[in-house]
Amino acid sequence: MSDAPLSDAPRDIALQTVNLFRNFGGLTATNDVSLTLRRGERHALIGPNGAGKTTLINLLTGVLRPSSGRILLEGEDITEARADERVRRGLARTFQINQLFAAMTPLEGVGMAVSQTKGKGWEFWRSVGHSRPVIDEIVEVLDRFGLCDVMGEKISSLPYGKQRLLEIAMAIACRPRVLLLDEPAAGVPEGEREDILDVVAKLPEDVTVLLIEHDMDLVFRFASRISVLVSGALLTAGTVDEISTDPRVRAVYLGEADHG
C-alpha cells in the first residue's frame, strides 16, 4: 500500500490530497485541491477570506467528508477514517476559534489528550494519575507551553493568550506527526503574541506543520513553503520567494494586503 507509485518518493510525503472536491449545494468550496506536505516541512496555506481554508482543514481532519478525491497520511488512505482515528494515526489540529473544555482545568484537558494517546482512553477503573508515564508527559507538555502555573485553574477563567497556548498544547499532547495550525495567533492581544509565535517556532522539527494563516508576518517568518488557495482551488505553491514575487498571488492576495 505504502509502495503505491505516487508522484514523488512516498516516504518523504507526510500528508497529501489527491483531486479533492467538496460541494455545498451549488457551491464548490474545495475545487480539485492536490496538496503535498513533505515530512518535517513548515508549510503555510494562505488565501483571502472565503477561499475555503477552513473547509479544507475540516476535510483533512475528518470533520467533513470530501465529495470526491483522496487524502493520504504517510501514504495511507485516510479519506474514510473518522476524526478520532486520524488523530490516533498521527494527524492533530488546533482550531481558529478556541475549542476547549471550558469547565475543566488545563491539567484535565492535556491529561485527557495524553491518556488517549497512551492508549488509556478506555481505562475506567483506575484514575488518570495512577500512571507515571501519563503524569510525566502531562507535566512536560504543560511546562513546554508555560501552563504549569495555571494547571489547576478553570480553563474559561484563563487569559485569552493562555487559552490559545492550551489550544496548541492539547494538540501537541496527541503526539502528532502532522499538525494543522488554524490561525494560532488569531485574536491574541499584542502583548501576548510573542508567546504564541515562540511556541510555533519551537515546535518539534520532526513534526510536519501546516499553518493556515492570514498574518503575512507570521507566514514569512515561519514557513518554508506556501500554498495559495483562491475560490476553493490551489492557485499555486512554492517557496516563500517564489510566492512573494508571483504576480498572480500579488494580484489576488498580497496586492489586496498592500492596499489594506
Binding site: 473544555f101 485527557m112 488517549q116 482512553g121 492539547m170 499532547a173
Partner: peptide
C-alpha cells in the same frame, strides 16, 4: 474524563482522539 469532554465539546473531544 472523556465523557465530560464529550459533553463539553464533542468536536474537540474527537480532535484529541476520543
Amino acid at each position: 474524563w472523556s465523557l465530560r469532554a464529550i459533553r463539553d465539546n464533542p468536536l474537540r473531544a474527537a480532535a484529541i482522539g476520543v
